[in-house]
């Protein structure tokens, strides 16, 4: 983390390609067998999705990563509150980013707003 944090400062954004191999490895690492993540006929024909659904917690992980990479070893994440608004699909590219909303220079406590959004915003 190079510059001194300031309210309104934007974090460097990161683009994530929602890759099918990554989905497989991620869900396997969790032991998540939910078909919507890897079974294309099931996801599209039975559940009516436009494609394979990116695992919700992976999007949550990308929220953490945008902060963690910016902090590097200058701090740690003590808490997060988030919700999944819309699904992301394999083949899409999403953007993770964030903004500093509160900063206490004495304690070093930071509050940030973070997002992962698709190309439709």
């Amino acid at each position: 983390m190079t510059p001194e944090p300031a309210i309104g400062m934007a974090l460097p954004e990161r683009r994530h390609d929602c890759d099918v191999v990554q989905q497989m490895l991620y869900n396997a690492s969790l032991w998540n067998g939910h078909r919507i993540h890897f079974d294309m006929p099931y996801a599209t024909e039975v559940e009516g999705y436009p494609g394979l659904v990116v695992a919700g917690p992976l999007l949550g992980d990308w929220l953490h990563q945008i902060v963690d990479e910016w902090l590097d070893d200058a701090g740690m994440i003590t808490g997060i509150e988030y919700s999944n608004r819309v699904a992301a699909f394999v083949g899409e590219t999403v953007t993770a980013g964030g903004t500093v909303t509160q900063y206490d220079p004495d304690s070093g406590a930071l509050t940030l707003e973070v997002f992962v959004k698709n190309d439709r915003g």
Binding site: H16, Q22, L25, Y26, A28, S29, P57, L58, G60, D61, W62, H64, Q65, D68, E69, D72, D73, I77, I80
Partner: peptide
């Protein structure tokens, strides 16, 4: 760490666990 696309070496080396 690899499956989530992490780029931080401390996680990729398994020295400490990433959040989540």
């Amino acid at each position: 760490a690899v499956a989530t696309g992490s780029r931080l070496q401390k996680y990729l080396d398994g020295d400490v666990a990433p959040p989540l």
